[in-house]
Amino acid sequence: MSDQPDQQAKKPFLYIVVCAAGVAGDVGKLITAAQEANWDVGVITTPQGLGFIDTEAVEAQTGYPIRSAWRSPGDPRPLPPADAIAVAPATFNTVNKWAAGISDTLALGILCEAYGMGIPTAVLPYVNSAQAAHPAYRQSLERLREMGVLIGSYEPHRPKAGGGADRYRWEEALELLTPKVSERP
Rank of each mutant, 00 (worst) to 15 (best):
I85A: 08
P80M: 07
G51Q: 11
T121M: 08
D40I: 03
A37I: 00
P179T: 13
F13Y: 13
S2R: 11
W170M: 01
F52I: 03
D6K: 13
L108D: 07
V123P: 03
A90P: 13
R138V: 14
V27H: 00
W98R: 09
S140D: 09
A60N: 14
A133P: 09
V127L: 00
G74S: 09
E59P: 12
G152N: 09
L108M: 06
T62E: 03
V149M: 11
Y115M: 13
G22W: 01
G42A: 10
L111V: 05
L141P: 03
P5A: 06
A114H: 02
I44R: 03
D6P: 03
W70M: 10
D83F: 06
M117R: 15
A34S: 09
G28N: 14
P47N: 09
Y168A: 01
P47D: 05
H157N: 14
L108C: 07
G163I: 10
T91L: 10
Q35F: 07
D40N: 12
V181I: 15
R184A: 14
L111S: 10
K97I: 02
A60G: 02
L50Y: 13
G152E: 05
V23S: 09
G164S: 05
Y15I: 07
A24Y: 06
A24Q: 08
E175I: 03
Q8S: 14
V43C: 06
K29I: 11
P125S: 09
E171V: 08
Q4R: 15
G109H: 01
D166Q: 10
P179N: 13
A84D: 11
I16Y: 02
Q8I: 13
E175K: 12
V87Y: 07
P156H: 08
K97M: 09
G25M: 07
G163T: 14
A100P: 01
G152D: 06
G74K: 12
D75W: 01
A86Q: 06
A99R: 05
H157P: 00
I31H: 09
V58N: 07
E56W: 11
I16G: 07
Y168L: 02
T62G: 08
D104K: 12
